[in-house]
Simulated assay, not measured.
Amino acid sequence: MDKLRGGSLVGGGSSSGAASTTPGQEHQQLEQYQYPKNLIEQYLRASSKIKKFERAGFFKRFAPSVVDVQADFQRLAYSFEESGIQQYAAMCHIGYAKCESYGGAPQRESEAYLRAARSFLAAHNESGRLHLRTRHSGFREGALHCYHRAADRAVDGCVFKAAILRELKQLQRQLDSTSSFASPTHQIHDLEISAETSGQRGDFRSALQHYDDIVDNVYERRGARMYGELLRRVEVLRLLLLVHLNLPPARQSPAHIKLIEYYYNLAQFESLPCSADDGGSAERPGAFVPEQQQYALAEITCAWVERKMCDLKHLLRDFGAEFGSLSDMERQLLAVMHAELARSY
């Protein structure tokens, strides 16, 4: 038996080399064998860290930091792309974008969402070539959402935003020509465009109705946290439109009354500012409006309710001057309201 063993070892030198693998090589071979599984486990760990940070500010006191999680998402995104698992690469880019949002870098956040959209689109095209059942909605829906998020976070009027909208328009053209698919993102985007068009031609009641429809649409889908920036913008516009239209209580909806009462009570120090991060419902007035803006809006509401029109005129001017992040529609409405008050007060 010893001779047989010796003969087999001598006669098969390559077998000897394979049999004498080190523990490190065996571990590396095992990692290669479990490669996709390990990547997905790493993605899930990174995602759980993001959730902890969102809920409790965990990384503000303990390691690892947001920068470390961001590096994990970036590394994993490239690894998934090399492995051809584009949908997970897209989700890693979304995680990276969330980390950028905590650092207050909207341009880099927009770039990350654009990478996510392209990865979802690549996954959609690949599933079509393989004739998978998910091709008709899932990945394309993800691409649409990420394109809109990228456009929302990009600076208005820049070349980068124009490029995003060009890619989005091309995808929408494909949707119109191949199916009757209508995504929630499409519906919300169309409502916002309709509201802006109504506001530009002076039909402020129709604009208010469109913004109300946006809020109802988002709340019905339980997607408030997904559309935080949109809800902030829409809430400011709805409140300003209510002040400008000066509707009597009988013509205000329950949602309008709730919105006005929230800001008036805030001005009277009868309540504290709400936030989507305080553990309460995200479907509340003020949930996505920064605290400083909430107090400014409360002063505007109080001046309107108490008919202090001179004060209201100055508060509207100050609101536009103080907050540089306001959208073009918000600034246009503030200018119209200020000009109308200036003629009488």
Rank of each mutant, 00 (worst) to 15 (best):
Y227V: 06
G103K: 05
D278C: 10
I94F: 05
V234L: 02
D72T: 06
D152K: 02
Q293T: 05
N265V: 00
P36V: 15
P36C: 13
A303I: 01
M91E: 09
F160S: 02
F181Y: 14
Y295T: 05
A342C: 08
E196R: 07
M1C: 04
E283A: 14
F323Y: 15
L241E: 01
E196P: 05
E340V: 07
F204E: 06
L259M: 14
S183W: 04
E340M: 13
A163Y: 00
I300C: 09
A46C: 07
A154N: 04
D213M: 10
R108C: 01
S137E: 08
V66M: 14
V215N: 01
F139N: 05
S83G: 11
N38L: 14
G17Y: 07
P249Y: 02
E261F: 01
K52L: 15
H189M: 06
R135L: 03
G7D: 12
A250L: 11
E235K: 06
L168M: 12
A116S: 07
A182Q: 13
L191S: 03
R5Y: 07
A335G: 06
I40D: 07
E126S: 07
L247E: 14
A154R: 01
L334P: 03
L315T: 04
A321W: 08
A339R: 08
H27G: 06
A162F: 06
E141Q: 09
G280M: 13
D176R: 15
Q170G: 08
A116H: 02
E291I: 15
V336T: 11
E126I: 00
E82I: 10
Y227M: 09
Q187L: 09
N38D: 11
T22D: 02
L44N: 12
R129A: 08
R55V: 14
G103Y: 05
K313L: 14
S275F: 09
E270G: 12
